[in-house]
Design a binder for these strands. Structure first.
Lengths: 207, 207
DNA sequence: TATAGCATGTAATCGGTTACATGATTCA
DNA sequence: TGAATCATGTAACCGATTACATGCTATA
């Protein structure tokens, strides 16, 4: 699945410009896909060339024309074919975790600063999420699938944030060479919980 | 941060062949980095060319020679410089979530099959994780940073798995067009919990 | 005055994936 | 017999990021 497929997908709901698609990506696909202008504009051009979308130039006062794209029947068919054929991969590329993994090779202050930065960024993302759900421009009707995907992002983000906050202090202490105390022992690798189903004791690969 | 940096990082602990590094990646970096032979071998060649690692050919009975790489002082310096300079990004690329987001454009059976596949893959990954921690080849001494990174992966995986399992049934029901019942309402977008700190009511960006 | 938002695009580069090429050993 | 493990590498391709290029408006 590439940026072209993503563009077709967002165009199933509304006609949009490349600029709009970029904004949509930032707002709703943020948890699982990144796409910049450099990939969106060429993708749209290619889709148009292949007859999967049509473009209409719209004049604007005091602005250059904008191109509004609309998906065609062929585009819908291509999208659906792509969706049934795409294997559900899920890839993470995290310099953050790589940095943490090599923490012992860095100055402790740097490690703590990195963690602080990530915690802040996670918190900001959660706030942004709320805006998407509840903000003034929030779409009142989300499909079940959209709710699933957005909820997934929120759940995972929340778990990640809690983990970072919980482990930051003892990581700092340990990197300074101080031994683990009882609080550490309790927070170490315990509770695989992290599911949102409440206080029951979690089983690992449980059903 | 690229594959070269990753190679330098794993070479700080032991001398390894390209093949070994690949295995290490699969086992311990799995949660946050992917690297295949096609990127590791060229990376090692380049590192050697730049004097950041040295290679020793080791003869083997009944096998072709293997090249064991060792990091140099220059390599260590370069790695440390890279680690303090690398911004802690964290990127997810998930065709799985994209598919879920466009669930309404797919046959419901396909959606459920995709979810089932992901649930299984998450469970397998968790089992593999256990092997890394507790298996026969488990390193007894993990640095605090390594424990942090591995624990992070485990926490997030567990949260993701629980989420998928909890939402699968109602997603299926909704896609078949049946209205939400009370159970759905309870499981909908509630409890941001998903932190591993127990049964207290979670606050969003709270501390 | 400077930054952010609106609006579109191209070109160079970079890095990674995939496929190809080889070949012995061991285990089921 | 076939698959998996060990072991290394190259070459083509592909897609995405980055920087470049342009230019007006509104807000701080």
């Amino acid at each position: 699945m590439d940026v072209k497929t993503l563009c077709l997908g967002v165009l199933t709901t509304q006609d949009l410009t490349g600029y709009d698609i970029k904004r949509t990506c930032e707002e709703v696909f943020r948890h699982f896909f990144v796409a910049g202008f450099g990939s969106i504009y060429p993708a749209l051009a290619e889709l148009q060339r292949d007859g999967l979308v049509t473009a209409t130039s719209v004049e604007q006062k005091k602005r250059p024309d904008k191109k509004v794209y609309r998906i065609t029947d062929a585009g819908r068919a291509a999208l659906e074919a792509e969706l049934v054929a795409t294997p559900p991969r899920h890839k993470v590329r995290s310099e953050f975790l790589a940095l943490m993994y090599f923490a012992h090779l860095m100055p402790p202050e740097r490690v703590d600063a990195v963690l602080a930065e990530m915690i802040e960024s996670f918190e900001n993302k959660l706030v942004d999420d709320l805006a998407v759900f509840d903000g003034p421009a929030a779409p009142l009707e989300l499909t079940p699938g959209q709710r699933f995907a957005l909820g997934y992002g929120r759940t995972v983000l929340t778990a990640a944030l809690a983990y970072c906050k919980r482990h930051r202090p003892q990581l700092a202490r340990r990197l300074r060479g101080e031994g683990a105390d009882e609080a550490d022992a309790a927070a170490d690798l315990p509770r695989e919980a992290a599911n949102d189903a409440g206080p029951r004791p979690a089983t690992l690969a449980g059903e």
